[in-house]
Amino acid sequence: MFKQLTDPKEPGFQVFVDGMAVSARPGDTVAAVLLRTPPHLARHTPVRESPRAPFCLMGVCFDCLATVDDQTSVQTCLVEARPGMRIERPRGKLKVAQ
């Protein structure tokens, strides 16, 4: 579905999406990683749990929100993937730590 434009010989690294190890490359945004990882979406809406995927890829639409390294509501299109990063796709209402 999406083609990576970086040099395939460039060493990649692993991030974890919903607990599953996924490969990423330097310069990838977290949104790009989510778009390449089935089911190719970033989150489900809080009320109706409708699937959402990154749309604008420039921080305007907020459809790419996910939990990154335990920080909720991160705009994944604005965050570069780093080795070992933990990404969780929200489903339903957010659970706020107290």
Rank of each mutant, 00 (worst) to 15 (best):
G84K: 07
R25I: 09
L35D: 10
A97M: 02
S73N: 15
V47S: 07
K93G: 09
R36W: 03
M1V: 12
F13Y: 11
S73M: 13
P83E: 13
K95A: 14
P39K: 02
A97Q: 11
P83Y: 03
A97T: 04
D18M: 08
F62V: 00
A97E: 13
C77L: 06
F16R: 13
A32V: 06
G84I: 11
P90V: 07
M85P: 02
P51Y: 02
V30E: 01
R91T: 14
R91E: 11
F62Y: 14
P8S: 01
A97P: 02
V60S: 07
P11N: 10
L78Q: 15
T29M: 08
F13Q: 10
F62N: 12
V22A: 04
G59N: 06
A53H: 05
I87T: 11
E80A: 10
P8A: 03
Q98A: 09
A81G: 09
S23C: 01
G12M: 09
V22C: 08
E10T: 15
P38W: 04
K9V: 01
F55S: 12
M58A: 05
V68A: 12
L57E: 13
D69T: 07
R86I: 05
P51A: 14
V47G: 01
D63N: 13
G12H: 10
R89H: 10
G19K: 00
V30T: 09
R36T: 00
D7E: 11
R25H: 14
Q14K: 15
V96K: 02
D28A: 01
R86P: 00
G92R: 05
C61S: 06
F2H: 13
L41M: 15
S73E: 14
A42H: 03
A53R: 14
Q4G: 01
